[in-house]
């Protein structure tokens, strides 16, 4: 599903964010990206959604080689990869349902489809009763669930979560993790960058540890620290 061959990324200002990263993630996997701030987690995520291009090496996501992908093909890659951020990135002037429907509308879906898919996503994240509320009226955990619902409406094969619990209290964090685990069980490949040791240690999934842009540990059923 995701393959990185000898990938290095050097930014124009000279910072080497990643070097010689090899990685293979199978369809349906759940993988944690761990490491200190600046270790290269965010760069890796940006490569996967083609916000950045590798300086050398090859990044293949869902069969697309991101470096050779034509500009017109980029939206297709982005639809195959859902993304959830620490700061939710919800539109404050739109309701919960409108925020979710937005992802369908701007990818060209028609009316009845938008309605059905939005309702399904709302039910999946348990927010049907909050559909008419605005983001500012929701708790942090609820806002993150809206963001997850929005990332799932286009049925992505991969869901990337960049510190999804970074702004949440422990109880709410667990709710979000439970939800993400369910999404993964339904077949979506899950890549999650996190600093939350408790969650990583409790779940015992594959752990990819980055340090100064290099993979220092890739462990099945791993722990947060070696």
């Amino acid at each position: 599903m995701i393959r990185l061959d000898d990938v290095s990324k050097r930014y124009p200002n000279g910072t080497a964010a990643l070097h010689d990263v090899d990685l293979f993630i199978e369809a349906g996997e759940f993988i944690f990206l761990v490491g200190a701030s600046g270790a290269g987690k965010s760069t890796l995520i940006r490569l996967l959604i083609r916000e950045e291009l590798p300086t050398t090496g090859r990044v293949v996501v869902d069969g697309h080689d991101v470096a050779t992908l034509r500009r017109s093909q980029v939206p297709l890659l982005r639809r195959a990869v859902g993304v959830v951020f620490q700061d939710f990135k919800l539109l404050p002037t739109k309701t919960v349902a409108e925020n979710i429907a937005f992802a369908l509308l701007v990818t060209g879906h028609e009316g009845h489809q938008v309605k059905e898919e939005t309702e399904r996503a709302l039910a999946l994240v348990g927010l049907t009763h909050r559909r008419g509320h605005f983001p500012r009226e929701l708790s942090g955990g609820e806002q993150q669930r809206v963001a997850i619902a929005r990332s799932l409406v286009n049925h992505p094969k991969i869901l990337i979560a960049d510190e999804p619990t970074g702004n949440l209290d422990p109880v709410t964090s667990w709710e979000i993790i439970k939800l993400l685990t369910r999404v993964n069980e339904l077949g979506t490949t899950l890549v999650m960058a996190t600093h939350n040791a408790e969650i990583v240690n409790a779940l015992r999934r594959r752990v990819l540890h980055l340090d100064h842009g290099a993979v220092v540990r890739d462990e099945r059923e791993g722990l947060y620290a070696a």
């Binding site: 017109s72 939206p75 982005r78 639809r79 990135k89 937005f102 701007v106 990818t107 286009n154």
Partner: peptide, 10 residues
């Protein structure tokens, strides 16, 4: 930003 993230075309 969100449009581009969710895969809206240019």
């Amino acid at each position: 930003e969100i449009m581009k993230l969710v895969g809206a075309t240019d």
